[in-house]
Design a protein around this nucleic acid. Sequence first.
DNA 1: CTGTTAGCGCATTCAA
DNA 2: TTGAATGCGCTAACAG
Lengths: 348, 348
Amino acid sequence: MFNLYRWGRSVLQKNITAHDIANHLGISQSTVSRVFTPGASVSEKTRRRVLEAAELLGYRPNMLARSLITKKTNMIGLVMGDIDNPFYPEVLSKLSGELKKRQYNVLLLNAENDDVPSESLIQFLGYNIEGLVVTDVLLSSSIVSQFAELDIPIVLFNRYTTNAHCHTVCCDNMDGGRRIGEYLLRTGHRRLAFISGDPNTSTSQDREKGFRDALLNEGLHFMTESGGYTYEMAYEAANRLFLRADRPDAIFCANDIMAIGAIDAAKKLGVRVPEDVSIIGFDNIKPAAWAGYDLTTWTQPVDRMIEATIDLLLEKIEEPDRRSQADYQWIKGHLVERNTVMTRNKND
Amino acid sequence: MFNLYRWGRSVLQKNITAHDIANHLGISQSTVSRVFTPGASVSEKTRRRVLEAAELLGYRPNMLARSLITKKTNMIGLVMGDIDNPFYPEVLSKLSGELKKRQYNVLLLNAENDDVPSESLIQFLGYNIEGLVVTDVLLSSSIVSQFAELDIPIVLFNRYTTNAHCHTVCCDNMDGGRRIGEYLLRTGHRRLAFISGDPNTSTSQDREKGFRDALLNEGLHFMTESGGYTYEMAYEAANRLFLRADRPDAIFCANDIMAIGAIDAAKKLGVRVPEDVSIIGFDNIKPAAWAGYDLTTWTQPVDRMIEATIDLLLEKIEEPDRRSQADYQWIKGHLVERNTVMTRNKND
DNA sequence: CTGTTAGCGCATTCAA
DNA sequence: TTGAATGCGCTAACAG
């Protein structure tokens, strides 16, 4: 009889290989491999024996060796931008969760202050990641072309470029901005202001552009301040706005964090929200729902965006020629009415 | 002369290997390998030629093949608990950043609601991760022993167990709780309350225990409510507290999110903070500093905790016998005084 | 259904 | 300093 010690290896050995199992069972290594290869043909009996021995000895196929041959690592690179915005941890968590459901693992890279470390991305290539998701930042074109040459798909989450190799899943920011503008108009606001995020980002630009379009239809202009997507800068920006002679009756902030900063600034100055000024945000992060703010805002449909991201990415990976998914997807959000906007008398 | 096409491969070829470079240069594959192996001996001249050709052809060593031999993958597994608490995205981002500085990459796994997917962790073993960092959750002992058998170190961040194989880097929660208790006593509070987090977590338990110790020294008891580490539950818990006949004059919440919920509950009921009730949190997350809350709280020294985590983990990985780092580290935080606690007249 | 063989791309002996 | 040879652990033909 074969037994655990027959081949001079103890149960406590660290690296059990398919070979060990094969020897232990007196079968060939490739048969063992077949048991762990979906779709390979093995008799039910040997399958059971192998599985049993594997369980006993603690065998687990070595993904690295496997990947070396199959060229499938099941690893996806994830580049995270602005983690300070609570919107993105949510994205991160859901994205990695969904990816795991589909058998993919996430190799993480965080890009602090818009500075995507190119060398790390190149390292990722060394690990043979099969795809890349990039949230809220842009990649250098040199990096993009390296990925392109290797046919590794890239999906930009909430960003877009004209670079043909980058696909995009994005909240329809223009639409959001426009409909927020229309909403503010419809509720009787006339002295409007916009606090922008980082002016270099398409998210901020598009929200502003949509907003402008809506106002232009009514022949209205609006004041602008820069809030850099941070609480502190938006707080200051709002202060400047409130101190103006023609103080706005509504402020649209390019994200919720800034809207919260604006609300706090208003409180400090004794400007009442929404009686004296309406404030509206964008993202619908958790704190927006807190009783202390109760912020009217715009929802980014995270779940649908993530679903689209994954469907797009995995289609590119698994059936590159299928192209059933659009390469650029703009997903519309919707208004969440809470209590920071009030309807005004148009003859105010 | 050799040229790019001599070996029938075009510049656009997808997978350039060390062999390709070798052929292109008319040298051996092992020489090419040496150029990319720190400490190997290659003449300066060939090193330059190889590097040049590599650059030209876009060669990059395949980490998988390399790891197969060296047993070094430079990958660290990271299990993230409660990502809803803004404290943890910060940890995530800093941890992965520091790890990258030390040449390690992060394989991510997020554990939603305390449910660590064991199969995913076992998958991680297949990828030959070299270490595991676990934030704010606990692992099943069966998983831990599998890691132990393979000598893969585990560092628990903000959790601890008696399991010998798990090392720990933790904010000294008992100390924090105690010193918060002492602070509240010193500032004249006598009717104290505690809103706990998830009662199963050591973080909540220890903060409560320290708090109790401080009060016991003065022979005081305190009211307790459960806030489950969420804004909503803490809001309700605070409501119950405020409606009692013996309404507390100070509430210690086991984290900032809950303290914010408590503040909002107070506002809603017209209970003034800090005039009628003092509120103190734990974590010092960003929103605690917002003007709308201006929360007095306890800082977890994130940077030092992360540094300790990495030092500990990498020592276990790189020089397992050195043991210069303590296996269990409790790091003390400190009070951040803002405006939700006021000194009371002891004869009130 | 199973065993044999041949690599995947690389680091690492051992000679030269 | 370099090249030839070997094998890490595995999958994928190819026979049988």
